[in-house]
């Protein structure tokens, strides 16, 4: 809890725009391990600009103050911008894939559960099926808990990606380090 009694978010979302070059992910991951910062989840993908990739990092700020993490990250030459998204004012999505062992008798229950959550069955075999759910992380948490009553053979989550919500965008997407003309110019 903070001084004013509001709960302190342990996980902060940083969306980091990086140059799309070899070894950049290693530089980011190496920085976190070398300085002892904890990563809760991490997702990397190209953006609509082929020169840039976006890394969405969920940082556990119990390991280090967020400002330290951001300032150190900003020193990586390939890091172009860093924005922090407050979880309350960000659209967050994550994808979950799970293979569940289910005899024909149980199968309909699993399919029903997937239906309630708005997921999909993406693969079916004789005695198991693979299901998919995309959604906010807490929804995935709930789905994962209920799925655990069945025999989960394999489960994989992607880690979060996030964008600021549109109505409060100017306030929510705290752009910590903005794009500027190259200092070399």
């Amino acid at each position: 809890m903070s001084a004013d009694g509001a709960p302190v978010e342990r996980h902060h979302i940083l969306t980091v725009l990086v140059e799309n070059k070899a070894g950049v992910l290693a530089r980011v991951a190496g920085l976190f391990s070398r300085r002892g910062y904890n990563i809760f989840s991490l997702a990397v993908a190209p953006t609509d600009d082929s020169r840039l990739s976006r890394i969405t990092i969920v940082v556990d700020v119990e390991s280090a103050p967020l400002e330290q993490v951001v300032n150190q990250l900003d020193k990586l030459v390939n890091v172009v911008t860093i924005s922090e998204l407050a979880p309350a004012s960000a659209v967050q999505r994550e994808l979950l894939l799970a293979t569940v062992a289910a005899e024909p008798a149980e199968r309909s229950q699993v399919i029903q559960l997937v239906g309630v959550f708005g997921g999909e069955v993406v693969d079916v075999g004789a005695d198991r099926l693979t299901v998919m759910l995309a959604g906010p992380p807490d929804k995935l948490d709930g789905f994962e808990r209920l799925l655990a009553t069945y025999e989960v053979v394999d489960l994989q989550r992607t880690g979060r990606v996030a964008l600021p919500t549109i109505d409060v965008q100017p306030a929510s997407g705290r752009r910590l380090v903005s794009v500027q003309p190259s200092a070399a110019g």
Binding site: E19, V77, N78, V79, V80, Q180, S182, A183, A184, G185
Partner: peptide, 10 residues
């Protein structure tokens, strides 16, 4: 003449 260092700031 120009360096391509979009992530480097002083």
């Amino acid at each position: 003449d120009d360096l391509d260092l979009p992530g480097y700031r002083v």
